[in-house]
């Protein structure tokens, strides 16, 4: 019994720690329902002054809309185009992840399973990029994208973000494909499968774990990407992603604390839901990458 009590107390303690851990998010959500005056004078309560917990009772339902300052959301949505930012972020992230996946998978497959003239040179060049001090590459990148005629477009933004060499993923794929048994190809050849078919039908389905890891890692990274979208959407406000949109919203409306909170809530709720829904894949993916 005593042991059980200790166990419960330890669990409660851990629960308190995790609640503190996520409190900044709770704070942001609750702030988005307040007024600027309340925010400036520093209020720590969960509800805005105008609302009571009893407003949430079903028979008081009308009060909630009135007392919870939903107008903050309306303003943020209209003023700051958060629907557009969300959409841009989805398009941007999905495109980048797909491009990176395809490229790294193909490169890793060839490097891991075949020998051909020039292989060592290519391998060395790829690994070297991890160690060469890069300088400030965003400027030439910017020029290159403009020279290609896709500056200030979504494709330019996607290319800028997905270009570059993803050494880690390539090595992951190469190591994984190298570890697959040699007999697989032999069997494929017996059946008369060509190079492409062997890759698509035999090898690719086996690579699911690495694909999942790469997908998750690149997804988190791209969704949170800030620098390249900041620079590449600098003259196309309509192409901004959530992070950059939020940033420029605050630049232009920094006195609007509740608008900020509403905007931030709009920005992080979707990714939180995606994460909570698929969290097993997230965690397994990350763990898979570090194990490999």
């Amino acid at each position: 019994m005593n042991k059980r009590m200790i166990k419960i107390i330890l669990h409660l303690l851990f629960l308190v720690i995790t609640l503190i851990w996520v409190y900044p998010l709770i704070w942001t959500i609750t702030s988005s329902f307040k007024t600027n005056r309340e925010m400036f004078s520093g209020s720590t309560s969960l509800l805005p002054n105008s609302a009571n917990w009893s407003d949430f009772l079903p028979w008081n339902w009308g009060n909630v809309i009135e007392n919870m300052n939903f107008s903050n959301y309306v303003n943020a949505w209209e003023l700051a185009n958060f629907s557009g930012y969300f959409f841009n972020t989805v398009v941007f992230t999905v495109s980048v992840v797909l491009i990176v996946l395809v490229l790294c998978c193909m490169t890793g497959y060839v490097l891991g399973r075949y020998t051909f003239p020039g292989k060592t040179v290519i391998m060395a060049a790829i690994v070297a990029t991890m160690f060469i001090p890069a300088g400030y590459t965003i400027i030439p990148l910017w020029q290159l994208i403009n020279a290609l005629g896709i500056g200030g477009s979504m494709s330019g933004l996607v290319l800028a973000e997905s270009g570059g060499t993803h050494v880690l993923y390539i090595l992951l794929f190469a190591a994984y494909f190298r570890g697959l048994p040699k007999e697989l190809e032999e069997a494929g050849k017996m059946d008369g499968a060509g190079f492409m078919r062997t890759f698509l039908i035999i090898m690719l389905p086996l690579a699911k774990p690495v694909i999942a890891s790469t997908f998750i890692l690149q997804f988190i990274q791209t969704w949170n990407s800030f620098f390249i979208p900041l620079v590449f959407t600098i003259h196309r406000p309509d192409l901004r992603t959530l992070g950059v949109g939020m940033y420029s919203f605050v630049e232009d409306n920094s006195a609007d604390l509740v608008g900020m909170a509403a905007g931030a809530t709009i920005s992080f709720i979707p990714i939180l839901l995606v994460f909570l829904f698929f969290q097993r894949y997230f965690v397994d993916g990350v763990a898979g990458a570090v194990k490999g």
């Binding site: 629960l15 995790t18 851990w21 900044p24 998010l25 704070w27 969704w223 949170n224 605050v250 997230f282």
Partner: peptide, 23 residues
């Protein structure tokens, strides 16, 4: 518990900065 600790990882850094400035 694991999810709770992992939550901040999926947030956009820029948004974290803005929230924290106020906190």
């Amino acid at each position: 518990f694991r999810s709770m600790f992992f939550l901040p990882v999926v947030l956009t850094m820029a948004i974290v900065g803005i929230i924290m400035k106020n906190i």
